[in-house]
């Protein structure tokens, strides 16, 4: 492998020569045409997490959300800063446990739905009667 050489910057003030290191190793004298376009690899944190201080990753146990594409053992990205809205998948506190459900805000009250016909809906009079732990933004499904 040749020497790593990138664009050179000459600081006129001090006549110091500094060399920017290219992320792509190239043979001396033949700079890769791609290196000018390199802007860092895809960063999943940047794409999947909007606010790192408010975001937690949790693991699913059970099959009650199968219909939403959320399976046993999947990881969920949960943002606690988001406002829970009608139709969101949320993590709610039920009987002292973190539980994942689909939130449905209706005129007659709040319903926490499973996405599997084998599990019943849970009804509460108002959102204030519930502790919503966070809003699920992504499911990391194991295929």
């Amino acid at each position: 492998m040749g020497v790593i050489i990138g664009p050179r910057v000459i600081d006129a003030g001090t006549s110091l020569l500094s060399v920017l290191i290219s992320p792509v190793p190239v043979a001396a004298g033949y700079p890769s045409p791609a290196q000018d376009y390199f802007d860092g690899r895809i960063d999943l944190n940047a794409h999947l997490i909007k606010d790192i201080t408010s975001t937690y990753v949790v693991r699913v146990s059970g099959d009650s959300m199968d219909g939403a594409g959320i399976s046993d053992g999947d990881e969920l990205i949960v943002n606690r800063a988001l406002e829970p809205r009608d139709g969101c998948v949320v993590v709610a506190v039920l009987d002292g446990e973190l539980t994942v459900k689909r939130l449905s805000l209706t005129a007659t009250g709040v319903v926490l739905r499973a996405e599997n016909p084998r599990y019943p809906d849970i009804r509460v009079p108002a959102l204030s009667d519930l502790v919503i732990w966070g809003v699920v933004t992504r499911c990391l499904h194991h295929v």
């Binding site: 937690y56 693991r59 146990s61 059970g62 046993d72 990881e75 969920l76 039920l94 994942v100």
Partner: peptide, 15 residues
């Protein structure tokens, strides 16, 4: 260690 170990993430119930 809920937030620093992948193997120890908080578990949410789907049941």
């Amino acid at each position: 260690r809920y937030t620093t170990e992948w193997a120890e993430l908080p578990v949410v119930k789907a049941m």
